[in-house]
């Protein structure tokens, strides 16, 4: 099961975090900073998996942003998780039209809505980009008038 999903930039600033098991604020901050520290210290050639604090971390770097998924236990398919991260990024990319760090930062709630269409309680809901975005786009059109409050 997925325990958490993080998007952290190269400076170690969290841009999005979603936990599927409750962690206290202090342990989240510690976990995030340790995660990114370890990811940053690795080169492109090294593998995308890490183990620490009982989590198995699968990460992938896209430009300046690290997409980090923490799973528990031995059962997870690491390569599958890597593929999932890629799907997530492709979906965001499709939605934001060549996504960048700032898109996610300024549209935090939208990124969360997309993520919620893909992951629920640490399990995968949907991996088809069109199926993920269809309700999101539909709702956005419908709620067009009220949307101004977000901005």
């Amino acid at each position: 099961m997925i325990q958490f999903i993080l998007m952290v930039n190269k400076q170690g600033q969290t841009r999005l975090s979603s936990y599927y098991n409750w962690l206290s604020m202090s342990s989240r901050v510690a976990l995030e900073s340790e995660c990114i520290r370890r990811c940053l210290s690795r080169s492109e050639l090294q593998c995308s998996f890490l183990e620490f604090r009982g989590y198995k971390i699968t990460y992938r770097r896209y430009a300046s942003l690290f997409f980090i998924v923490g799973t528990d236990g031995e059962e997870e398919n690491e390569l599958g998780m890597l593929e999932f991260i890629h799907t997530l990024v492709e979906t965001l990319d499709k939605y934001f039209e060549s996504v960048c760090e700032l898109d996610i930062m300024f549209n935090l709630e939208k990124a969360h809505f997309i993520l919620d269409e893909m992951v629920m309680n640490g399990m995968v809901v949907e991996t088809n980009k069109a199926n993920i975005l269809r309700p999101i786009l539909l709702l956005q059109r419908e709620a067009g008038k009220d949307d101004s409050i977000f901005k």
Partner: peptide, 20 residues
């Protein structure tokens, strides 16, 4: 009753609250 508010509310619930 408004959907956008409900949506943010639920998102807040999921992110800010613990099961406890």
């Amino acid at each position: 009753p408004h959907f956008p508010e409900k949506r943010i509310g639920y998102l807040g619930l999921m992110l800010l609250l613990s099961e406890e």
